[in-house]
Design a protein around this nucleic acid. Structure first.
Lengths: 188, 188, 188, 188
DNA sequence: GATGAATGAGAATTCATTCAT
DNA sequence: GATGAATGAATTCTCATTCAT
């Protein structure tokens, strides 16, 4: 009885939105999966769009927490990169849907401005890291927005592959890819 | 006035599917943009799903052509990578929608097996390149499916950034990112 | 704090039914206005339809009381008309919503037979007055049901106008209209 | 095949709105009665509210035509009244639903401003008649808005009674009531 | 007794698809 | 061949009613 319905709805819609996309997910589908009546969803969220945005913000907020919390401000750039890369990986491993969802629903058609800004805040943190690394002469001198894809884009696709394909996730694999991405960023 | 209606429909749906996604694109929208009657679409494609699959295959086919055509079979691994990277970049520059479309619609929910296989064929070509590079002791020894994201994932996100954000595309930028990605792949 | 909840619900629903109509009034709206929980309404009324009928009967009953109480049985027809007209006017002035509500919800779709009969009882009293006036050779010889509208219809519309428009209610105005209506009924 | 669907929808919704009211009439009900698919209604009217307003305007426009057309500008006030009264009666006899519909849906909650203005235009014509009659010293000196109910309110209720009850419509009856109403308006 | 969270049947509306012209 | 009006199944959302607290 003490099941939190709001939470159930959030979890169910996260799974469905990630799997099928926003438009292909119907409200009854969410209700079914969340084990609530369809009408109940509207007690917690004004409408489907609001549900999406609430979910999006919560996911991005969690990712942001993960990235920034315990960030080794005074450590080496390499160690900072290790922190960011591992946090992204851990986040993806624990909440694969959340990472995929964040990445695949970043469209202004359905997301409101606040949600988009939340994402840019996250991105801003990564940009700051890149710029600092560049100032220390350690990271390649290219536009930060062009360098972020080297690890962010790689990780996103990596999780896509490990879900669909037969590639097995392992600490070794992720450590290897981290090294590759770092090699991609650093000045040789 | 012998404008090819089939072609118009393909172009219109490519733009709309890419911009809004499959589910948020209505057949009348496509008809409007293609300047044909809604019924006409059904003369050329059995239904919306078939249209999507036809479009998908054609796009992947073109990408595949681009990647494989004039592939320098006997050149160095670095030169082969240059070929692949540049072909991906050029394809994205000339047909940004196609690249985005291919990437964002790779879901088994709507794509039939043949379309998915077409994509895997493309991927297979990239895998072969990776494996060969590894056999020559030049590319890092990690699962090819985990290495492809290092440049494919990077390029995909790069094009997303150059569309949304204020980052300007330039040959220099792409050359720089190519070098980065190569550094990510090669053994140091 | 022993506010009678049943009474509050009646008052709230009277206002809302009159203003918005039965179908456009939701039970939560009534609960809100009555300052009770939505469920509480169902303690006092079996359902929305029963609430409407209860309210309708009560209103008609009150109107009937007003019309009949102290009716000058043995006075002149003109004096009797004065009584009826003034009672209608006073009822409308004190309980404008009730009069409007009675008039606008006289539809067999939602009212049960008993409620309708209650209204016809009221009408019957007016008919009796007309018939008696005709027997005394004072009121025009037309079907009573066609004569009642001359003052009842007039008063209903009059209250509509004084609510919506800028026409101000005043004893003089009502006295004037009473005279008009009487002139409409009486034989010249 | 040449059945005008728009017209069918208008007729069906007129009957249903009049009989059941706007809120109690569902779109499928209208579709059924109009013998069209539910979706078809939305080809002709943006939504249910627009349908109501279109219908309202058309009905009021017709009534206005009836009242003003061939109005005997230079005849006596009595003759002018005869014209107005008879036109109202004829309109009600030929299109009872239209008259009832106009009268019962004059609520700003669903009608847009243009529709309401259309009605006030109609009312304005009646006011002008009253005022002119007063200037000629023939009609009672009371606010025109309070005098219009004497015949307009009477007629509305009269048609209600002849529908529900057993009162039979006849030229004689209407002529009698016209005389009554005129007696109500004129100075004795 | 009172509440209001939960429900699901039913409402308005959209849209893929058909088919007469 | 081409069209777009017509359709009805499916979608989002509302609200009368119930029932655990």
């Amino acid at each position: 009885m003490t099941t939190n319905k709001r939470e159930n709805i959030m979890i169910a819609s996260l799974m469905l939105f990630t799997e099928r996309g926003y438009d292909a997910t119907t409200v009854p589908m969410i209700a079914d999966k969340a084990q609530v009546g369809a009408g109940t969803i509207y007690r917690y969220f004004e409408n489907k769009e609001v549900l999406l945005n609430s979910l999006y913000r919560e996911c991005v907020e969690q990712l942001y927490q993960r990235l920034t919390e315990d960030f080794p401000v005074s450590a080496s750039v390499r160690e900072q990169f290790h922190h960011l890369f591992q946090r992204l990986i851990h986040f993806g491993q624990e909440h694969r849907e959340k990472l995929t969802f964040i990445d695949s629903h970043m469209e202004p058609r359905i997301l409101d401005e606040e949600s988009q800004n939340k994402f840019y805040e996250c991105l801003g943190f990564l940009q700051k890291f890149i710029i600092e690394g560049q100032q220390q002469g350690i990271i390649v001198q290219l536009h930060p927005d062009a360098l972020i894809p080297i690890f962010y884009g790689t990780i996103i696709k990596l999780f896509k592959v490990t879900r669909d394909g037969d590639l097995e996730e392992s600490a070794d694999l992720f450590a290897g890819i981290e090294e590759c991405c770092w090699n991609g960023l650093k000045i040789h």
